[in-house]
C-alpha cells in the first residue's frame, strides 16, 4: 500500500509539474500565433515563424483513399497507439505514426504554392476522423486497406512490432486516422526556406507571330494602330513590332484558356527546433481560443495535481 501511494504521489507531482511547464509552452505558442501576421506565399519573406493560410492543393497531388474511413483525400496519417495499464488506470501511448506522403502543397491564391513537410509538426485537429481497435495478438486480422497502408510505410515504423504477441501478454492496440481532403483550408506556422523560382515569361511562339502579322496586314485599323510615325504607310519594322505585341497578347490569352499554369513552389515548410511548427484545419481564431483553454487548464490543473501528490505524501509520511 505504501509503495503504491509513493508511486502514485510521485506520478502526480511529476505529471503536475510537466502540465504546468506544458501550459506555459502552450501559452507562448498561442501568443506567437496571435503576434504573427499572415504572409502571402508568393511574396512573403522566408525564415522562422512564418504563418500562412491556404487550401490543400489538388492540382499537383492525386487523390488517395484513407485506409480506415475510405475517404477520398490528398493526405492521411495513421497513428499507432498501445494501451498501457496499471492497477488503477490506463492510458494510450503512441508507438509510431506514418503519413501517406512526406508533405502536401498549399495554395493561397497569391500565385505560388507552399510545400509543407509534415514530419515533426504539431497537428492540431478537432478530433481524429476514424479509429480501429484490436489486440496485439490479432494483428493479422487488420482490414486489408490498413494492411496495405502499413506495408507501404513499413520502413518508417520504428517502434511498432507488426507481429502477433501471445494471448497471455497481449495489449489493446489502437489505429487513429486523420486526413486532409482536397481544398480543405489549413493554417500553417513554421520555419520556411525558399522554394524554386517563379516561372519565367514565355517566349513568343512563331505561329502566333505569323498569324498576328497576317492579321495586321489584312486589317486597315490595325495597320493604322501600329503605324508609329503616322506616315500612312506600315514599314516592315513597324509591322514586326506590331506583330510581336499582338502575337504575344494572343499567345498568352490562348494559353490561359488551354492550360491553367501551375503556380511555382515559393516556400518550403519544415521542422526546425526550437521554433514551433503547427498545422491545423481550424480557423486561427478557433485555434487560439482552444489553446487558451488548454493552457489555462494545464496551468491550473498541473499545480492542483502536484499539490495533491504532495498532500498524500505528507499525510502518510509526516
Amino acid at each position: 500500500m505504501t509503495i503504491d501511494l509513493v508511486v502514485h504521489s510521485a506520478v502526480g507531482i511529476g505529471g503536475g509539474l510537466y502540465l504546468f511547464y506544458s501550459g506555459f509552452r502552450e501559452l507562448r505558442i498561442k501568443r506567437t500565433i496571435e503576434n504573427i501576421p499572415t504572409s502571402k506565399i508568393n511574396t512573403g519573406a522566408v525564415g522562422s515563424n512564418v504563418e500562412i493560410k491556404g487550401q490543400i492543393d489538388s492540382e499537383v497531388q492525386t487523390a488517395i483513399q484513407a485506409p480506415l474511413s475510405g475517404k477520398g483525400c490528398l493526405f492521411f496519417s495513421i497513428e499507432i497507439q498501445q494501451e498501457v495499464r496499471s492497477k488503477d488506470n490506463s492510458y494510450w501511448k503512441t508507438l509510431d505514426q506514418c503519413y501517406s506522403h512526406d508533405g502536401f502543397y498549399l495554395n493561397d491564391g497569391s500565385g505560388a504554392r507552399a510545400l509543407v513537410y509534415v514530419r515533426g509538426a504539431e497537428i492540431k485537429r478537432e478530433k481524429s476522423d476514424k479509429e480501429f481497435l484490436t489486440r496485439s495478438n490479432r494483428l493479422d486480422e487488420l482490414p486489408p486497406s490498413l494492411i496495405q497502408a502499413l506495408t507501404e510505410h513499413r520502413d518508417k515504423l520504428k517502434r511498432f512490432k507488426w507481429e502477433n504477441s501471445s494471448w497471455l501478454f497481449s495489449n489493446r492496440i489502437r489505429f487513429l486516422e486523420w486526413c486532409f481532403v482536397s481544398g480543405e483550408p489549413l493554417y500553417v506556422l513554421g520555419s520556411v526556406r525558399s522554394g524554386f523560382k517563379a516561372e519565367k515569361r514565355k517566349k513568343l511562339k512563331f505561329k502566333y507571330f505569323l498569324s498576328a502579322k497576317n492579321k495586321i496586314e489584312q486589317d486597315e485599323s490595325l495597320k493604322d494602330r501600329y503605324d508609329e510615325n503616322r506616315d500612312g504607310n506600315l514599314d516592315p519594322e513597324e509591322l514586326e513590332r506590331g506583330a510581336k505585341i499582338l502575337g504575344y497578347h494572343h499567345q498568352t490569352s490562348q494559353e490561359k484558356e488551354e492550360e491553367k499554369p501551375k503556380p511555382a513552389v515559393k516556400m518550403i515548410f519544415h521542422h526546425t527546433p526550437p521554433h514551433p511548427f503547427i498545422i491545423s484545419n481550424m480557423k486561427e481564431g478557433t485555434l487560439v481560443k482552444k489553446m487558451n483553454w488548454v493552457s489555462a487548464l494545464k496551468l491550473f490543473g498541473g499545480p492542483v495535481l502536484a499539490l495533491a501528490g504532495i498532500y498524500y505524501l505528507t499525510l502518510n509520511f509526516l
Binding site: F20, L299, P303, A306, L307, I310, Y311, L313, T314, L318
Partner: peptide, 13 residues
C-alpha cells in the same frame, strides 16, 4: 508542505 507548495506554484506562475 502543501501550503508552501501552493505559494511556490503561485510565485512560479
Amino acid at each position: 508542505m502543501v501550503f508552501l507548495g501552493g505559494i511556490l506554484f503561485v510565485l512560479a506562475a
